[in-house]
């Protein structure tokens, strides 16, 4: 019996690995297809049955695709939005989460609960009036609508995530600092922030990905091609080079690569952070 049990465990393990390996291949295939298409001559892309190794290896697809449209401008625009948005989100979400997690003030929990309801609200409901507001303020076709709101708490999702993390830090640490005459800001800066790096990095990465991937915002607010972000740039590029799959795939790789890079840099914290969002939900 002991033998059959260890055998069935081995069998289970083997099946687990087989399924995971097959699943991994299926999940990677689109990326491999993307990469191989981005290095091929257009003619080879249309050969049937499909070939997997680019012959010749056309790395020139990349410079050619990137100069066919002003991708450098798109990149710089995205970068500008990113810098102003990201700094606002990180700074103000830390401050607000700190207030909701560790400072006692009347009505705090009620207000937090009310603010949390915005997570349930579809963005389409606020989209049009917000657009009208920016239009009245004369901010259309600027980066203002895409960056300024980030300075107002940086979104409840981020505040919620940070608050969950801040709550796990022992309160005695704050008290000790207060005894030494520290102000709340000083406690935040010297006690809470250093202990919350994983959560803060998670928020920063989530937001980076969100801004980088955002399409609807830039479509609505930016109309001058000189202000386009990479996301709109890529969609415009697609309509110009409809069947030029080698260029389209090369451009897609360029838009995708920074996100993957950021993910690998912050992975260690990031996976922890996502888990955090779900656990206390």
């Amino acid at each position: 019996m002991a033998l059959s049990k260890s055998l069935s465990i081995k069998l289970g393990k083997t099946i687990t690995y087989i399924i995971l390996a097959l699943g991994s291949i299926v999940f990677m295939l689109p990326f491999i297809w993307l990469l191989r298409s981005s290095f091929m001559e257009l003619g080879q892309i249309f050969i049937l049955p499909p070939e997997w190794i680019p012959r010749p290896f056309r790395w020139q697809n990349y410079p050619e695709a990137l100069t066919a449209a002003p991708f450098l401008t798109y990149f710089l625009n995205t970068l500008k939005i990113l810098i102003f948005n990201e700094s606002g989100v990180v700074l103000t979400s830390i401050i607000c989460a700190y207030s909701f997690a560790r400072l006692r003030w009347p009505g705090r929990d009620l207000i937090f609960a009310i603010l949390l309801t915005s997570l349930m609200l579809p963005y389409a409901v606020t989209l049009i009036p917000t657009f009208i507001l920016w239009k009245m303020l004369g901010a259309l076709n600027t980066f203002i609508p895409l960056t300024v709101p980030a300075w107002f708490g940086g979104g409840m999702f981020n505040i919620f995530l940070l608050r969950q993390f801040f709550l796990t830090i022992p309160y005695e640490l704050d008290e000790a600092a207060y005894m030494d005459g520290a102000s709340p800001l000083k406690v935040l800066w010297s006690v809470v922030v250093p202990l919350s790096k994983p959560a803060i990095i998670t928020v920063a990465i989530f937001n980076f990905i969100g801004v980088w991937n955002d399409l609807l915002g830039p479509i609505i607010y930016l109309s001058d091609p000189g202000k386009y972000t990479l996301a709109i740039g890529l969609s415009v590029f697609r309509s110009m080079y409809t069947a030029q799959w080698h260029y389209l795939m090369a451009a897609s790789v360029v838009v995708l690569a920074p996100v993957i890079l950021i993910f690998f840099i912050g992975q260690r914290y990031f996976i922890q952070g996502i888990a955090l969002t779900g656990l206390k939900g």
Partner: peptide, 9 residues
């Protein structure tokens, strides 16, 4: 401080 810091949100 609590109210001031929560104000942005």
């Amino acid at each position: 401080w609590g109210i001031i810091l929560a104000l942005p949100a």
